[in-house]
Each structure stands twice: as C-alpha cells, then as structure tokens.
Design a binder for these strands. Structure first.
Length: 217
DNA sequence: TCGCGGATGAACT
DNA sequence: GTTCATCCGCGAG
C-alpha cells in the first residue's frame, strides 16, 4: 500500500491533508506473549489489498487463544487445518466456522507453539464501499462487527491461511500511531470450553465492538 | 436489548 | 455422526 494509492480515491473518511502513514508492524516489536499481543493489537490497522482497491480498518476487538487452552484449536496438537497456528508469530490462521463464516486469527508464539489471536471487529476507515459490496450493503457500524463479518468485509478466506501478516502482500497489519485507546477486558464470546477466562480485549466506547452490551462496558 | 433456531461445510472421532 | 471461536431474522419484554 502506498500513500498515493490512498490519496487517489476520493473517499470522505480520510482527507488528503490527513492521509495515513501506515507502517507494517515489525516482528521484533510484537509482544512475546499471546495475551499481551491480543491487547497490543487493539488500535492497529488491518490492510487488505484487493484488485478493486484497498480496504483498511482499525482493530477494536480481539481474543487470545493460548497454547494451554481447551478453546484453542491447537490444543490437541497440529492438524492440517490448524497448522498455521504453529507458525512463528505474525501469520494468518483462517478457518471456516459453522459452515458459513471465516475467522481471521494471527499466530502469536514461537514456531512450533500453537496459539493465536482472533480478530473480532474493526472500525472501517478506508475502502468502505469495497467492504459494503462484500457485505451486501450492511450499515457501516455493522460492516466488520463480529469475526465472520470482519472476514467477509475483507474478502478473507482459506486462500489467505498461512500468509505472513508482517510482510508486503494481500493482507497485512500496520500502525498509524493513533492506536492509544482505552482497552476493556472480558470473557470470550460464544465459547463452550474454557468460557470463564477473561481473554477478550476491546476498545472501550467504540460502537464497532461486537457482543452484548454487558460485555462492552 | 435479549435469546432463540436454522443455515451451513469442513475437520475430526 | 459430532463439533464449531457465527450470522441473520424474528419475536418477546
């Protein structure tokens, strides 16, 4: 993604004089620990480069899935589906849930350790029309509120499983220096296993966070 | 604002 | 055959 590419599109959400300077996250800068990484990713940007343009959203909700965690797909060892969770921190793990929705995760530990962070919701910032087309005209507030919606809005599917999110490519994660948000914490959403662990993080007060109101105080 | 049920498909036991 | 970290539309309160 180049600044020029952002500025050539005449979208109201980012004015020319405030064009974002987005830098890819460096692997060195990532927190070592999965929980710290889930918190760290709040406020960072997901950049999706598509033939029709670039879609960008700010991460406002994440969940940590630990190596020692019954709710983590890697909990019972590596399988063809979950092998991306065992890649060095910063790789995409994408899978289909309930036959209808893709989930986008980022691997979070050293190579060989299966753990990750689920990206649950974005504040749409740029390429909103692109995302709305992918979401059948949904309201902006609901474009990427929920993990399945997030993946749909960014056209993320299994083809992006294993992609390095810290390298140039179709999908990467960056920072624009404005990510200092008030971060709340709660139990994770929708789980049947290990449902009591408070491993969900969200930007307090953001209307783009998913889940019932009691879980986003 | 909430809780419910159906649609959906791939991986795993 | 079972499981799964969801979405959507609907109806109750």
């Amino acid at each position: 993604m180049s600044i020029a590419c952002v500025m050539t599109e005449s979208l109201p959400e980012i004015s020319a004089r405030r064009a974002p300077r987005i830098r890819r996250l460096s692997r060195r800068a990532l927190p070592r620990d999965t929980v710290a990484l889930a918190r760290f990713l709040i406020g960072k940007l997901v950049v999706r480069e598509l033939p029709g343009g670039t879609a960008i959203g700010r991460i406002v909700e994440t969940e940590a899935y630990l190596a020692d965690d019954a709710a983590c797909h890697a909990h019972r060892g590596m399988t063809p589906r979950n092998r991306s969770l065992f890649l060095e921190a910063g790789h995409a793990y994408v899978y289909l849930c309930y036959g209808t929705s893709y989930m986008l995760n980022m691997s979070s530990e050293s190579a060989g350790i299966g753990a990750g962070v689920l990206l649950r919701a974005l504040e749409p910032l740029h390429g909103i029309e692109l995302m709305r087309r992918a979401r059948k005209g949904a309201a902006i507030a609901a474009l990427a509120r929920g993990p399945g919606r997030l993946a749909a809005a960014l056209k993320v599917d299994r083809r992006l499983d294993g992609v390095d999110l810290l390298s140039p490519g179709p999908l990467w994660i960056g920072c624009d220096g404005r990510g200092n948000l008030d971060i709340g914490q709660s139990v994770r959403i929708g789980l049947t296993k290990a449902a009591d662990a408070r491993l969900r993080f969200f930007a307090r007060g953001s209307p783009y966070v998913s889940g019932p109101k009691r879980l986003r105080p």
